[in-house]
Amino acid sequence: MDIAALIMWVVTALGGFYMLGIWITHGGARGGTSRLPVPVIFGHFALAAVGLVVWIIYVIADETALAWTAFGLLVPVALLGFTMLARWIPVYQGRATTPAEGEQAAPAEKHFPVPVVAGHGLSAVTTVVLVLLTALGIGS
């Protein structure tokens, strides 16, 4: 199950990298009209990356404390992810506030493909469940 969690974590990360690239390319990191705060985006990314490294070390070392550490890192990652999802939904539905004159026409996150957002979210939930089950020793 630890390898399945690792695979899902990597799949989730790939979707996240893709969306981060879109967000940066469309000016999200420069502020503008983005509804996703820069610290939330990069906090989500950094915690997820550190957690992935801890999980890789867990897979190699098979120390239960590392599995629980990785799971503990996933909790704030998930909370930040839900925060971003909640802020993205109105942008996707077109209910975001109208930008002031001279600002970028659409928030950077408006360009996220819905299948990528959905896939990232579903694979993230799967990752969290697999990591938790592994930390609990279920399926070993």
Rank of each mutant, 00 (worst) to 15 (best):
M1A: 12
M1F: 08
I3M: 13
I3F: 06
I3Q: 14
A4L: 15
L6C: 15
M8K: 06
W9L: 12
V11G: 03
V11L: 12
L14A: 11
L14Y: 04
M19W: 11
M19G: 09
L20C: 04
G21Y: 11
W23Q: 04
I24W: 12
I24T: 08
I24C: 01
H26F: 12
R30K: 10
R30D: 05
G31F: 03
G31T: 07
G31H: 05
G32Q: 11
S34C: 10
S34F: 09
S34Q: 07
R35C: 06
L36F: 12
P37Y: 09
V38A: 06
V40P: 10
I41W: 08
H44A: 03
H44M: 06
F45Y: 03
L47Y: 02
A49N: 03
V50T: 06
G51D: 01
G51N: 01
V53S: 11
I57H: 13
Y58N: 12
V59D: 10
I60D: 15
D62I: 12
E63S: 07
T64I: 11
T64A: 11
A65F: 11
W68Y: 08
L73N: 02
L74M: 12
L74Y: 06
P76R: 13
L79Y: 13
L79V: 11
L79C: 09
L80V: 08
G81S: 09
T83S: 08
T83Y: 07
M84N: 03
L85G: 08
L85M: 11
L85V: 13
A86Y: 08
A86T: 05
A86P: 05
R87G: 02
R87N: 09
R87D: 10
W88K: 09
I89T: 05
I89S: 08
P90H: 07
Y92E: 13
Q93M: 14
A96I: 08
A96E: 13
T97H: 14
T97R: 15
T98C: 09
G102C: 10
E103L: 12
E103S: 13
Q104W: 10
Q104P: 12
Q104L: 13
A106R: 15
P107T: 04
A108P: 09
A108R: 05
E109F: 00
E109R: 00
H111Y: 15
H111V: 13
F112H: 14
P113Y: 08
V114R: 15
P115A: 13
V116P: 02
V116F: 04
V116D: 00
V117R: 10
G119M: 14
H120E: 03
H120P: 06
G121W: 04
S123N: 03
V125E: 07
T126E: 04
T127R: 01
V129N: 01
L130C: 04
L130S: 05
V131N: 01
V131D: 05
L132K: 00
L133M: 11
